[in-house]
Amino acid sequence: MTDISPAVELAGLTKTFGPVTAVDGLSLRVEPGEVVAFLGPNGAGKTTTVDMLLGLARPDAGTVRVFGGPPSDAVRLGRVAAVMQTGGLLKDLTVAETVRLAAHFHAQPRPVAEVLERAGIADIADRPVGKCSGGEQQRLRFALALLPDPDLMVLDEPTTGMDVEGRRDFWQAIRADARNGRTIILATHYLDEADAYADRIVLVRQGRVVADGTTAEIKNLAAGRIVRATLPGADQAALAVLPGVQAVEVRGDAVLVRTDDSDTVARHLLTRTAARDLEITSRNLEDAFLALTTGTLTADPAPIGA
């Protein structure tokens, strides 16, 4: 590949639905070959962003570039393909017929048999789509997305509504797909999926990126602890400069400090201030995710993963 433009470049992307701002000035750059999880709770604006990224929705403001051009060009050239939450299938066709039909829409499709094999549905090729389980239909959508051998694959909550077995089979199919150079963007609200599959996690909340880093960096968020104490009129600036402190938040009479070094914060609070009721809680990745995506502890997006 001689391509030097980023796989995806979103700048100041904004989309509102009436009073709801679904995507709020979101910017994101994904380089070719990256495997990125777009992680956030329901309603964070993931699908709306993905729709704009694929040219299915027009942004109110901001720009979308896919491999340096508009998304429609990338779709037409088969450079981008997607497995979406919505997007139905024809019930009267079989699995193989669906893939065969869709193959004709591409200039240079991969062979149907190969695609069925890679999506793990070769054994149900002759089954009518209407008789396939949700997981099987999702793997069929994945097969359709594999047809152009896209440079960028977008997966939007691909395992929603699947049972445990369906999820396992789907991820098996995705993993088996050799990703040699393929850029992947996975929108999900499952932390474990992001953790297991992505090299980089972009956390979104209320249409904004609240954290962006390698999986390891995001995981480091979990290394910290939260020191909580009752301290009316806490001096936030003084706390923020203590070594290891990541974020400080005052909530009523309480102060919450997220830190890598809870001992120092605790010592400071107990010896230099009138703090009482002090408690220290450790956090795991789940907590970090919840904290960042629900706003229970304000995070500054810049330092995380920077």
């Binding site: 590949m1 001689t2 495997v35 037409r76 050239l77 088969g78 450079r79 039909l101 004709h104 829409f105 591409h106 200039a107 240079q108 051998d149 440079d151 993993r175 050799a178 990703r179 040699n180 150079g181 393929r182 297991a196 599959y197 090299d199 999986t215």
Partner: peptide, 29 residues
């Protein structure tokens, strides 16, 4: 993170073109 890169897969295709007639074909018909 256990995503292995297969050594056997071909490089990404470079010469891409849209389908003739916008995808209208006798086969689809």
């Amino acid at each position: 993170m256990t995503v292995a890169t297969s050594a056997t897969t071909p490089a990404r295709p470079v010469d891409r073109r849209p389908p003739a007639l916008g995808g209208f074909s006798a086969a689809v018909l």
